[in-house]
Design a binder for these strands. Structure first.
Lengths: 156, 156
DNA sequence: ATAATTAAAGTCAACATTAGTCAGAGATGA
DNA sequence: TCATCTCTGACTAATGTTGACTTTAATTAT
């Protein structure tokens, strides 16, 4: 509850900013670091530990002149628990067939439509991923499908 | 919208001109440079980074007396030629930024909706693909994106 | 006609300005 | 004490800005 570390304080500050600004905020890393008198890379640490997609945040950034970090809060969907169960079932690796079963489940539950299922299925085939190593293929498919389900948990 | 650097500002200015003039505009490099008080070669930088085929633009120019730079916004539905050029631009490997530019172009041309863009984008981030090798990551991204474009070409 | 001059745009490398990564030191709590 | 979380700074990567030099094309002079 109370902030015990500087990272907690910075995290709460950013969340307050988000609440004030329609759940969307853009910062300059060095500004925030200076404001709290920490090194700039601590801002990366705060974001990596407290503003993940699992927490419902989408983060984008740009380097170089005029660079920025943009944080956006997105809302959970009603059926988010379904996604959680499917994510758990994926693990480190997944075959194309098991992946298609998961997509079928999503279709049957009305969480994806036909076009979306076809689209995802067509881009996650063996030929599309096209890495030489069998294990790499199944790992990539698992990572990528998990990332998709994490995103689908949220609106937009 | 958000212009963080002079290059952003110039890019937005040119896009506003395009919108006003039927998505086709011809400029003199030195005029634009003078207008924004930058060196002329910065206009080349802006065009090279913000008016690529991935962004949905075609650029032609002429040197010497009476020289010009002409920018045109492409229409993917009407011109299958530029569609092929877009596919060609992906090649064997592609960065996350270029991939996101392409998805934005597909959205602007009505080939994907917002939700579909979010789905594909979440699949093709650095974190989602999550392979140790940089080259493998860009190759997987290129393969998957090419598969999507090929599918859109024939099924839309 | 041909050459010289002028008027554009193009290229590239150096430098500037941001954010990201990572390993290790330090702090904290069970 | 041990594991985990926090914090730091050196190094890396990406993006933006500038200016010297090059290339191309039109115009003018011979």
């Amino acid at each position: 509850m109370a902030s015990h570390s500087m990272s907690d304080t910075i995290g709460e500050y950013l969340k307050k900013l988000l609440a004030e600004r329609d759940e969307e905020v853009e910062i300059r890393r060095s500004d925030i670091a200076e404001h709290f008198d920490v090194v700039p890379s601590q801002i990366n640490y705060v974001i990596k530990t407290r503003f993940t997609i699992q927490d419902g945040f989408v983060v984008q950034s740009k380097r170089g002149g005029g660079g920025y970090i943009r944080i956006e809060k997105i809302n959970l969907m009603e059926d988010s628990n379904v996604f959680d169960r499917l994510i758990d079932s994926i693990g480190d690796m997944i075959s194309q067939k098991d992946e298609e079963d998961i997509l079928k489940t999503l279709l049957n539950n009305g969480l994806l439509n036909k076009r979306e299922v076809h689209m995802v299925a067509s881009i996650l085939t063996h030929d599309a991923i096209n890495v030489s190593n069998y294990e790499t293929e199944e790992k990539v498919r698992a990572n990528v499908l998990s990332a998709l389900l994490c995103r689908l948990k949220y609106e937009c």
